[in-house]
């Protein structure tokens, strides 16, 4: 198939076929990461800029290493150490990044819709690395890649996403992706962290987490996002851990071949206990590893799409 997009802004925009094609291409890129010399010359002379208005460890490092393994040049911009501190606007910053003749700009921003806005301004390809509480498409793609690798399929799998659904762009992108690919998705959250009308997206609501994980093939835990709450949505961390965390005694309820995922960074002992995070059912570090192949595929496809939008 032909991939004809300039930008990767949301999973919602993608067709099932496009998602499957990205995952298939990522599979072909994975082998490069297992070589002694982890580098191919494909994107020589291309420039990839990471432009982050929020903190990040995994996503930025992952994009940077993906670009470098394809021989692109990488530039990193963090709002916290830049002229944004001196009052430069988002639009001016974007125009300056454009002036550097960049081919791909990877943006993380606290405002939902910021990357969509950037994609309309810039001639360069834009990749959404997380915008507010909207989407985080590359995370959903690497999650799907990991599920495919572990389970061989996505269609028909029982997948539970648990935690702060309301503030989670990871959850939103995953819900869009997994339902498009035919998984049975259920969500679990404290009532004040459950979006209204969530069932319209095609998911069901989990009533009894401990009981319903018995049927699950995949359990995806989300980080409690203390930074996105303007008021406390639960009384204490301990109470959250007690009622909504994945505790070690739940492990025995899981199917033998079930997997546990977490997009990171983890709050150990809050949404996930250390025993669960480090158990043999956890694929958390494999998610990180697969993120590189998925992002290599995305850079290759966007730069190689002929710049059509």
């Amino acid at each position: 198939m032909k991939f004809n997009r300039k930008d990767l802004v949301s999973i919602r925009d993608l067709t099932k076929e496009e998602i499957e094609f990205i995952l298939e291409q990522a599979q072909s890129f994975k082998e490069i990461n297992e070589r002694v010399i982890k580098k191919v010359p494909t994107l020589r002379g291309k420039t990839v800029v990471t432009c982050f208005y929020e903190p990040s460890t995994r996503t930025r490092l992952s994009f940077e290493v993906a670009a470098k393994r394809l021989s692109a040049d990488t530039l990193n911009f963090s709002a916290s150490t830049s002229s944004v501190k001196k009052g430069e606007t988002f639009l001016d910053t974007l125009k300056n990044i454009e002036a550097l003749k960049s081919d791909v700009v990877i943006i993380r921003h606290p405002a939902s819709g910021a990357t969509k806005f950037a994609s309309k301004i810039l001639k360069a390809s834009v990749v959404n690395a997380g915008d507010g509480i909207n989407e985080h498409p590359t995370q959903a793609l690497l999650d799907a890649f990991t599920i495919l690798e572990k389970k061989g399929r996505i269609k028909g799998l029982n997948i539970i996403i648990a935690g702060d659904i309301l503030h989670s762009r990871v959850a939103r992108s995953n819900i869009f992706l997994l339902t498009k690919l035919g998984a049975n998705v259920k969500v679990y959250a404290p009532p004040m962290m459950m979006p209204r009308d969530i069932e319209k997206t095609g998911v069901k609501i989990v009533k009894d987490f401990r009981d319903e994980i018995k049927e699950a093939d995949v359990v995806m835990m989300l980080r409690v996002q203390l930074e996105r709450q303007n008021k406390a949505l639960f009384p204490s961390i301990r109470e959250y851990a007690k009622f909504f965390g994945f505790k070690k005694e739940y492990l025995e309820n899981l199917k033998n071949d079930a997997i546990i995922m977490h997009p990171g960074p983890m709050n150990r002992g809050v949404e996930i206990s250390s025993e669960v995070a480090d158990s043999d059912k956890s694929v958390i570090l494999e998610q990180v590893e697969n993120g590189i192949a998925v992002r290599m595929a995305i850079l290759y496809l966007l730069i190689g799409s002929g710049g059509e939008s």
């Binding site: 198939m1 082998e31 002379g45 730069i303 799409s305």
Partner: peptide, 14 residues
Amino acid sequence: LSISTHYPELKSTE
């Protein structure tokens, strides 16, 4: 690749 506008599909090296 440097002169093509559309990159071909990649199949894996095994």
